[in-house]
């Protein structure tokens, strides 16, 4: 299920309203943008106006936070229909959401809640990804999340959990390097074991982001997307490219959003690392 002519390529950024005008003014050295799907599931007005114009000039990826693929509640069919409608409008190169649940019994915590890494959860998530792929008529792309709790009855390492879901559902992966790093600290594993444990040809996109220390002094790292990418994450990014090749990569920034030029400079760092690593190994 590859899309040869229409796969993402190169280096992208998350699309943020602060940057609309600058992006449309031209001279923006970005190969593609990732949109937060929920921001555009609105009837009309300014967001959709800018989205249509940016979609004319740049390839887009659609990234959602509301699918709740791991919830015990039924899939939200009307949300899926809205996603499919938005996809017809902007023709994204890929559609992704997170390996998490956001609520149960009809409620929504509006957060990416962690799943127990069990066979039950593998089958549950894989079955629902199948339904999503049917509804969207395309391969779905699943992102790993940061987490702050693990469960005593988890029987799989996180990378085994992801791999089993990929194998059973046929979905692809959006690998968030920062989330791998954050979890390696929060749950005490070797991030390289994680990378080594993933299926080599399933990674379609990479997220790079910053994190913070838990202000409560627990030593936990919190996935806040409000800082530049740190050195440890850059190093892990290089290790990921050695394993997965030239995967399209982007910077995610959701809070304390700097001027576009700062993000473009950060993206150049990713380009530098990628040109160094991929000329050596692939």
């Amino acid at each position: 299920m590859t899309h040869h002519g229409s796969a993402l390529q190169g280096f992208g950024l998350g699309l943020r309203p602060q940057h609309y005008e600058r992006i449309l003014a031209g001279d923006c050295a970005v190969d593609w943008f990732e949109i937060l799907s929920e921001n555009y599931l609105v009837p009309g007005g300014r967001p959709l106006y800018y989205l249509d114009r940016i979609a004319e000039r740049f390839p887009l990826a659609m990234h959602g936070v509301s699918l709740s693929i791991g919830s015990s509640d039924p899939l939200n069919r009307s949300y899926l229909r809205d996603l499919a409608r938005l996809a017809r409008r902007v023709q994204p190169r890929l559609i992704s959401d997170h390996l998490c649940w956001t609520g149960v019994d009809g409620l929504n915590l509006h957060d990416l809640m962690p799943l127990p890494q069990t066979d039950e959860a593998v089958h549950h998530v894989a079955r629902r990804i199948g339904q999503v792929q049917d509804a969207l008529g395309r391969q779905f792309v699943l992102e790993n999340v940061s987490s702050y709790v693990g469960f005593t009855h988890s029987r799989l390492a996180e990378w085994q959990f992801l791999s089993a879901i990929v194998a059973e559902s046929g979905c692809a992966l959006l690998l968030d390097i920062n989330n791998v790093y954050v979890n390696s600290v929060n749950h005490g594993f070797d991030a390289l074991d994680y990378l080594d444990g993933l299926p080599r040809h399933s990674v379609r996109q990479i997220h790079l982001a910053g994190h913070s220390q838990d202000a409560a002094g627990t030593g936990l790292l919190i996935d806040t997307h409000d800082h530049p990418v740190c050195d440890a994450v850059w190093a892990l990014y290089a290790a990921a490219l050695e394993r997965f090749g030239a995967v399209p990569s982007m910077i995610e920034r959701d809070d304390r959003i700097p001027p576009l030029d700062d993000l473009l400079a950060e993206l150049d760092q990713a380009r530098d690392i990628a040109s160094r690593v991929t000329t050596v190994s692939v």
């Binding site: 809640m113 709790v149 469960f151 627990t218 030593g219």
Partner: peptide, 23 residues
């Protein structure tokens, strides 16, 4: 709380609190 694994000595309560505060 009894379901939370705590391999890094953080404590189940403090781990859960990250989600409570974030919400």
């Amino acid at each position: 709380l009894v379901q939370i694994a705590d391999n890094a000595g953080v404590g189940a309560t403090r781990r859960a609190r990250v989600y409570e505060d974030a919400y």
